[in-house]
Write a protein that binds this DNA or RNA. Sequence first.
DNA 1: GCCAACGTTGGC
DNA 2: GCCAACGTTGGC
Length: 154
Amino acid sequence: MNYWLMKSEPDVFSFDDLKKRPKKTEPWNGVRNYQARNFMRDEMQVGDHILFYHSSCEVPGVYGIAKVGSKPYPDSTQFDPKSEYYDSKSTQDNPRWFLVDVTYEMDLDHHVSLEELKKHKKLEEMRLLQRGNRLSILPVTREEFDYIKKLGLS
DNA sequence: GCCAACGTTGGC
DNA sequence: GCCAACGTTGGC
C-alpha cells in the first residue's frame, strides 16, 4: 500500500467536485509530466490513499482524502485533437500518457493549509515542502499521511 | 549529447 | 503579476 499527494487547482477541479461526481470518481486526466505519469502507471495500486491538495488558490493545502480507484489505463484526452491535452505523438497502439481514477474516500473536519504543514517538524522532509518542487503527484510516507490526516481531524 | 531558449508551476 | 525553479524542445 502506497500513499500519495495529488494537486489540483480548485477552480478547475476541487475536492467538492470529486464528491459530486457520479460514483465520486474522476479520471485523473491531463497529467503531462513523465515523473507524475510514472507514479500513476508504475506504482499506484487500487486502494492507495491520497491527500487531495488544492494549489494555486487562496489557501493552498490538503482538503480531503481520496483513494486510487482503478488500475492505470491510457488517458483518452491524448487522442482527442479538440482537447487541450491532445498529444499528436500518441497513438492508440502506443499511448504516451496513463492515468488512474481517483475516488472520494473521506472528508476532513477542516483543511490543513500549506502554512500549517510547514510548522511541523515531523513533516519537514515531505517532498511537497522541498524547494523547487512542482510535481503534481508526489509520494508521501505512511507516517506523513497519518500525521496530516490527524491534523485535519479534531 | 550539450545547452540556450522557452514554457509551466505555484507560492507569494 | 512576479519570479524562482525546473522540465522540455530543438539547433548544433
